[in-house]
Amino acid sequence: MLEASLFTSFFLIFTGAALLATIALFSRQPLLVAYIALGALLGPYGVGAIDNVELMSEMSHVGIIFLLFLLGLDMQPQALMSVLRKALVVGTISSIVFLAMGYLVGKAFGFSEAECWIIGAAMMFSSTIIGIKLLPTTVLHHKHLGEMMVGLLLLQDFIAILCLMILISGGGDALNLRQLSAAVGALPLLCIGAWLLVQYLLLPLLSRFDRFHEYVFLVAIGWCMGMAELAEVIGLSKEIGAFIAGISLATSPISQYIALNLKPLRDFFLVLFFFSLGAQFNLGMLPEIIVPALVTAALVLVIKPVTYRFLLGHQSERPLLAWDIGFRLGQISEFSLLIAYLATTSNLIGSEASHLIQATAIITFLISSYIVVFNFPNPIAIKESLRRD
């Protein structure tokens, strides 16, 4: 019964996604819109054709893990430190600005003190999936815009993971500083352990059996998943573990072969991610949160690009590049949804605040995708002049 249910779910998701994606392309709409709309249509708050959204959501999380693993594969460690140094000032100041913006919005609409801080925290981050997915590969790996984007997103990821660690260690009671400190202290040990395993175990094995493509594929997936699981066990997150797994292999000759072969698998799970995003939103909550969600989303879509334009301009970046980065990062993040989920399960925020964050995420994901797809170079642009792979 479970197998039939899972197969039926996959049939509905991917056949429906193919149909809606075709309509989206003919009507010149971003594909992400089709996936989210399909989730809202088929999910438990739509027609209810797929009710096991939790399973789909957990599976889709694998797509984010693969995305960060592939990102790590393309990042040389020396280049990573250089990128983070360049993004440190802009990333830190912008995060403070967005935290204050979310906090003040929460205050304006009468949320509790804890809810205001968590709404503010959710506003700090931009979507790694949308930011990287809509960035041409040549720009991502070979141009200054790609370096700054990656640096800002990585810095935000570290801040987001710190916020998640605080929520997890604090629960509904006092913050567990001992657990938090242990997790932070475990990060360099995880990096060193990954480097040693790659140098003295993985690379010798891959060099010896590299003609067996299936073996290389299995080792790459096993390494990614193993590091992700280990990172979670020691108090970090699966995302950080997957990223470290990628970086540890980045200097090996086989890294680009692995990256190329894992991209279809990543895209499979990312379709599930955007589907589950639409499916988990309770449409019945709309009357209560639609006004604050629209106000919050409007502020995010306006203040984020302006903030990045101002901060990057003061670092002598060209205005065109500063606006480009600002609009590409002009949404909130999948980490924001995870923060909302953890805060809800810890009884730190109520259902209304959680749905405000979810609605803001969906609105900003959609509108930000439209802005980028129709105005900046990207792999899925409708205009031929903007399409870059």
Rank of each mutant, 00 (worst) to 15 (best):
G39N: 04
V47A: 06
G46Q: 04
I23P: 03
G43W: 02
V62G: 10
I13K: 03
L20S: 02
M56Q: 06
S57P: 12
F7S: 10
P44C: 11
Y35P: 02
A49M: 13
P30N: 08
A18P: 04
Q29K: 09
E54N: 06
F26N: 02
T22R: 11
I50G: 00
V62I: 15
P44R: 06
V33C: 08
I13Q: 01
A17N: 03
V62F: 15
A24H: 09
A37L: 10
L31A: 11
S57G: 12
N52E: 08
I23L: 07
Y45S: 08
V62K: 12
F11R: 03
G39A: 02
S5Y: 13
S60R: 12
S5V: 15
F14Y: 10
M59D: 15
A24P: 10
A40C: 05
I23M: 03
I13M: 01
Q29R: 11
M59W: 13
F7Y: 09
L32D: 09
L38I: 00
A49L: 14
A34M: 07
L19M: 08
L19F: 07
F10P: 02
I36C: 02
F11E: 01
G48P: 10
A37V: 04
A34K: 09
S60N: 12
L55C: 07
L41E: 11
V62A: 15
I36A: 03
L41P: 12
Y45E: 05
G48F: 08
D51L: 10
F7T: 10
L41A: 13
A40H: 02
S5G: 14
L25Q: 11
I23G: 00
G16M: 07
A21W: 05
L25V: 13
G46N: 05
G43P: 12
L31R: 13
L19I: 11
L20V: 00
